[in-house]
Amino acid sequence: MPSELILKYMREEHLPHIWCPGCGHGILMRNVAQAIKNLGIDQEKVCLVSGIGCASRAAGYMDFQTMHTTHGRAIAYATGVKMARPDLEVIVIAGDGDCAAIGGNHLIHAARRNIGITVIVFNNDIYGMTGGQYSPTTPHGEFGTTAPYGNIDRPFDIAVLAAGAGASYVAKGTTYHAQQTIKLIENGIKHKGFSLIDCAGICPTYYGRKNKKGGAVEMMRYQRDNTITVEQAAKMTREEKEGKLILGKIAENDFPEFSDEYQKIIDRLKEGK
């Protein structure tokens, strides 16, 4: 018998999940469930949208209204859901390739519009489902099956990208710091407007193996020993921050929310103005 949290917020009959031993996605998915539980949101009112990739499989496991859509497009699908049904709490779970490569355009534009959806990125710096190709967040010099001589791309910082595009709530979590990450996800969901929580994942099977980072335990240890707060990061030079993970809120702004703004147009027309 699993815990009460899992029984209530996950589809027990579809567990255990397909993720590899030690994959951080299970921990991050539990964080999402815990955050929704803490907020006391009605499960029927949560619409969880995902794309394609390892992270996107979360939609099948979580017990909400779930839509497992096409690669990279979850945010665009979620935009339609939110506009048509502002009463729903719309959450997107996406991987780094899903949301920053093929779906990068949708990410920045949803952030710019500040539409009221929450994007939770399970960011493990690699394409896992297809077997370990480098992604837009794979650090420079690291290896993937399509970067056999080392990655010469420079990576995106998804959180900074989203904040720069106008997302009104942005935070960074890690797999190791579950408690803090749950709180950040809660704040993101509560926030009115476009929120993004970029969660540093761990992929021992592909990323860990390809880059000699050890197994799940070693990768978790690395997160424990190399995470700094937003406040600490603010006082450090770029060189000092090299290889560090950041934990905490990156941006929070009170920008007008898109579907609210649209409703104002509808109301104004109704009044004949």
Partner: peptide, 13 residues
């Protein structure tokens, strides 16, 4: 352990 178990195989009740 519960917070960090990727597979929901251990928890406190």
């Amino acid at each position: 352990c519960e917070l960090r178990c990727p597979d929901y195989a251990i928890y406190i009740e």
